[in-house]
């Protein structure tokens, strides 16, 4: 017969109490694994080796964050590969986490194949979580919006989705204003624009 475990105080504890303690410990380790896995950039399921898979999943993510973008846009997920930004270290983990959640919620690992509404649900659920998970997803949403709307990788093109036409070499003042501007102007209280 096994010796009953002892608590820190030396008192004998029941088997049930010991199992309960272990469960709490396991949960703690499980929770701690998220940052741990992120710290070591460990992504299960072959994500570290399969760049095409990671790319597909991240494209599914980006088109859920900014619906309307073309999934084939060459710059769509470039920010996840850009070492100037922190997410480059975590793209494998992010992709594997999205697929795992896809399994949990919808029974398939193919996150990128899910309809927009289901991909949105998954991201929404991750943003609603606490701690590191929320930080990771919030950062990924934030950087995806910046990269796409500001057209950071293609200054000539900008972002057609929001009519941002990027770099302008051939501009005219006439395009930027209205004819007969006095229709718009209110009364002025200064003679030269300087406050009194």
């Amino acid at each position: 017969m096994a010796t009953p475990p002892r608590s820190n105080t030396g008192a004998t504890v029941s088997r049930r109490a010991a199992l309960k303690s272990l469960a709490v410990l396991a949960a703690g380790v499980g929770a701690a694994c998220t940052p741990l896995r992120m710290a070591f950039r460990w992504a299960p399921g072959g994500f570290d080796d399969d760049q095409a898979l990671v790319d597909r999943v991240l494209r599914g993510f980006a088109t859920a964050v900014v619906p309307g973008l073309s999934v084939d846009d060459p710059n769509l997920v470039r920010h996840f590969y850009d070492d100037d930004y922190p997410l480059a270290k975590f793209r494998g983990y992010l992709a594997s986490d999205l697929c795992q959640e896809s399994v949990n919620r919808f029974g398939t690992p193919a996150f990128d194949q899910l309809p927009l509404a289901q991909r949105t649900k998954i991201i929404e659920g991750k943003l609603a979580k606490g701690g590191v998970t929320r930080r990771l997803y919030r950062g990924a949403v934030y950087l995806t919006q910046i990269a796409c709307y500001a057209g950071i990788y293609d200054p000539d093109r900008g972002c057609p989705l929001i009519d941002f036409d990027g770099r302008r070499r051939n501009t005219s003042v006439a395009d930027s204003t209205y004819p007969m501007p006095h229709r718009f102007l209110s009364h002025e209280i200064t003679s030269d624009g300087n406050p009194l």
Binding site: S172, V173, S186, E188, I189
Partner: peptide, 17 residues
């Protein structure tokens, strides 16, 4: 009331950047 502002610019081409 509303005033037109003063700027340090000559020959602005209104490119927006």
């Amino acid at each position: 009331s509303c005033e037109r502002v003063r700027y340090a610019v000559q020959g602005c081409l209104a490119s927006g950047f």
